[in-house]
């Protein structure tokens, strides 16, 4: 029966998608189907307000191997909308499902509504420079980034869980070793203040000066992508931007950050934005509340001193 399909390889995200699905249901009047695959943990799923829960069970534990089975489910049920968790695996699975269904897919939708027989979505374009509102014909799919919606709460109903056998063996693909990425556990999105380092800082050693500035503000240290991905001076979970962390601290303080749109997209909702940059025309100043034009090697020590006294 036509419905709204929910799937993520990450169960926390599944619960967030259920919230989005239930909002769509109000206008679409269609049931919300939650799909889990393999051994995914059912806890807290069957007692949300979702209408039906299906577990696809196959012999291959690799989440991506379920793309065919999810597409089959979607076409058998003639689903009208599919919301997928915007993880790397989820985006791959969603695109494969979309191709098999011949359906449209909106990547990292920030909002999803039902309007006039279509899904109406918003998303960022050009690295965050613009917001596009798009209309998607049914069946319409979207991926949704983590934390776009709150997790669905529990209701007093207990949904029956239906298990479906899935043939998900893949002949040409075998999965080798997986390694967890070691994180230092910093949750940048929770920081109240962030001092962010850009490539204006010339050497890794100079980060100690930035550390001192951060300390003087009681701030966490963040950075631009180049500092993490190209120079490896700071761990990747500290870089801010459209492809990195999205942060909304009370204060974002950029030092030697030019303010390219891809970086701004991750921090422009900060309460107060401050910048130090040598180049008066750096785009960061258009995005800033306060700024100083100058050499950071001159300004930062003066600032640390002023903050200490």
């Amino acid at each position: 029966m036509p419905g709204i399909l929910i799937y993520s390889d990450n169960i926390t995200l599944t619960k967030q998608l259920i919230t989005a699905g239930l909002l769509l249901k109000e206008k679409m009047n269609q049931p919300v189907y939650v799909i889990l695959t393999g051994e995914q943990d059912l806890t807290g799923i069957a007692n949300t307000a979702a209408d039906e829960v299906f577990v696809l069970k196959g012999s291959n534990p690799w989440p991506e191997s379920y793309a065919d089975a999810i597409a089959n489910f979607a076409s058998t049920e003639q689903i009208s909308a599919g919301l997928f968790g915007g993880t790397p695996r989820g985006k791959d699975i969603a695109a494969k499902v979309a191709a098999k269904l011949g359906a449209g897919l909106v990547t990292e939708a920030q909002s999803v509504e039902f309007d006039d027989g279509c899904l109406l979505t918003t998303r960022l374009l050009y690295g965050g420079l613009a917001v596009a509102t798009e209309e998607v014909k049914l069946p319409a799919l979207a991926t949704i980034a983590p934390k776009t919606f709150e997790e669905a709460g529990s209701s007093d109903k207990q949904t029956e869980v239906i298990t479906i056998e899935a043939a998900n063996e893949l002949n040409q693909i075998t999965i080798g070793e997986t390694c967890p990425v070691v994180r230092e556990g910093v949750e940048l999105s929770a920081a109240n203040r962030i001092v962010s380092v850009g490539r204006g800082v010339g050497k890794k050693e100079d980060l100690s000066m930035i550390g001192e500035l951060a300390q003087a503000f009681d701030a966490e240290i963040g950075c631009t992508r180049g500092i993490a991905e190209d120079y490896h001076w700071l761990p990747v979970e500290r870089y801010i931007g459209i492809s990195g962390q999205k942060v909304k601290p009370d204060m974002y303080f950029g030092v030697g950050v030019s303010g390219q749109v891809q970086h701004l997209a991750g921090m422009r909702e900060s309460k107060v934005i401050v910048a130090i940059d040598m180049n008066e025309n750096a785009p960061i100043f258009e995005a800033a509340d306060y700024g100083i034009v100058g050499d950071l090697y001159e300004v930062v020590p003066l600032l640390i001193e002023a903050l200490k006294s």
Partner: peptide, 10 residues
């Protein structure tokens, strides 16, 4: 399947 309704600068 996906068509733009509007594109607005942020």
């Amino acid at each position: 399947k996906v068509t733009k309704v509007s594109v607005k600068g942020f």
